[in-house]
């Protein structure tokens, strides 16, 4: 059982990293500055629903650290960690209430990832004006959240009869 879990987590971390890599290859930044699809969140939501909360935290944090080291810089890590922590916390809370589907959980995750990064930017840069960028990021976070939620729901459904 333990070996199986190690293998499963290794696999999901690798998958989350590939998602981040694909995302880096296809930047959406030209449309709305700073936005991302959040592909890696498909994997995080999958782990949250199919494996467990602790495992989701683990996969999310390791993914952020590795991706920051590989594809960007240490500065970016602070933003990513803030986004990941807030996003996962809120997704876990919403999932726990059992009042929302995967899509609702994913919407909240997408928005909170952006909010976490904005909070970190306000703290690190000391300029509150950055918060005025929130409306744009809330809207794009909702849009990407819906798409990611639908995809995550489909993936989770395929695994309905498989115990991980």
């Amino acid at each position: 059982m333990k070996t199986k879990k190690v293998a499963m987590l290794g696999l999901t971390i690798a998958l989350a990293m590939i998602m981040s890599y694909i995302e880096a290859l296809v930047p959406l930044s030209f449309a709305v500055p700073g936005i991302k699809m959040g592909l890696a969140n498909i994997v995080i939501i999958f782990v949250l629903y199919k494996i467990g909360t602790k495992e989701a935290i683990l996969v999310s944090l390791i993914r952020v650290i590795l991706v920051s080291l590989l594809f960007s810089n240490v500065m970016a890590m602070a933003y990513s960690i803030a986004g990941a922590v807030l996003s996962l916390s809120v997704m876990w809370l919403l999932k726990k209430t059992d009042k929302f589907s995967v899509i609702g959980v994913s919407i909240a995750g997408g928005i909170m990832h952006n909010v976490g990064q904005i909070i970190m930017a306000v703290i690190l840069l000391g300029t509150e004006q950055i918060a005025l960028y929130l409306p744009v990021l809330i809207i794009t976070g909702t849009a990407t959240g819906v798409v990611i939620g639908i995809v995550s729901g489909l993936v989770i459904n395929r695994f309905k009869n498989i115990r991980l």
Binding site: Y49, K99, F100, S101, V102, I103, G104, I107, A108, I111, L132, L134, P135, V136, I138, I139, T142, V146, G149, G153, I156, N157, K160
Partner: peptide, 27 residues
């Protein structure tokens, strides 16, 4: 696990609309 339960879908939509109103308000 039935993720397309009606009540949950309704809550999802309410959540979506609420955040969009919030964004519009801040803007």
């Amino acid at each position: 696990m039935d993720m397309f339960k009606d009540k949950k879908t309704r809550n999802d939509i309410i959540l979506g609309i609420a955040v969009i109103i919030l964004a519009a308000g801040i803007w």
